Computed example of a mutant assay.
Amino acid sequence: MTINIQIDSEHLEKLAYIGQQTHNDPSTLLSQEIDRQYQQLQIQTATSGVEELFWSTEAHSYITKQSDLFDTMLPELIEQYAGRYVLFEDGKVIDVDVDEDVLLDRVWETDLVRDRIAKYNSIFCHLVPLEGKVNA
């Protein structure tokens, strides 16, 4: 299906400029933007409902990213931290302890934790299993 869309001159100039800079034709740029917004709405829809009571879309993305990185690094984490809790951020272990409460008490007033709580109402603190496989 094809439809005609009217674009005002200001947006047409911006579209032409973006096309020149990215070496894409206007229809490709518009299609990419439509796809991007569609994906955002799909994520929002998927995270709405029960999850929304606890996490914003940003928090959900943050936790998903940290969880995926944790899973990717799981073999290395098991080698070094098996059976201990880790405060994990962007592929790095920030702190570790055998007792989750002790770990959280120790890190609670750090700038990193304050920032993550302010931004996402969340941090990524997780028990490293004694053994396991990466979640597929």
Rank of each mutant, 00 (worst) to 15 (best):
Y62R: 01
K133G: 07
H126C: 11
A82H: 11
A118F: 05
Y81W: 07
H11I: 07
D101S: 15
I18D: 06
K14E: 08
G19I: 02
G49F: 08
I78K: 13
Y38R: 15
T47I: 09
I94C: 02
T110R: 10
Q20V: 10
T57P: 04
G132T: 02
S61N: 05
D95W: 01
E58P: 05
T45G: 06
E131T: 15
I94K: 01
K133V: 15
Y81T: 00
Q40F: 13
L87W: 00
L103K: 14
Q20F: 07
E51Y: 14
E131W: 12
L15C: 02
I78T: 00
D97Y: 04
H60F: 06
D115F: 14
D68Q: 12
G19M: 06
Q37R: 09
A118G: 08
I63K: 02
D99A: 06
L29Q: 06
E51K: 11
V98R: 13
Y17F: 13
E89A: 05
L53N: 14
I34V: 09
I78W: 02
L130W: 07
L30E: 03
I3S: 11
A16N: 10
Y62S: 01
L103Q: 04
I43E: 09
A136Q: 07
N4G: 13
Q37A: 15
S27W: 07
V128R: 04
T57Y: 05
K65L: 04
G91P: 01
V113T: 01
R84L: 04
T64Q: 08
L69N: 01
F54W: 07
G83R: 07
A136R: 14
N135M: 06
T64I: 12
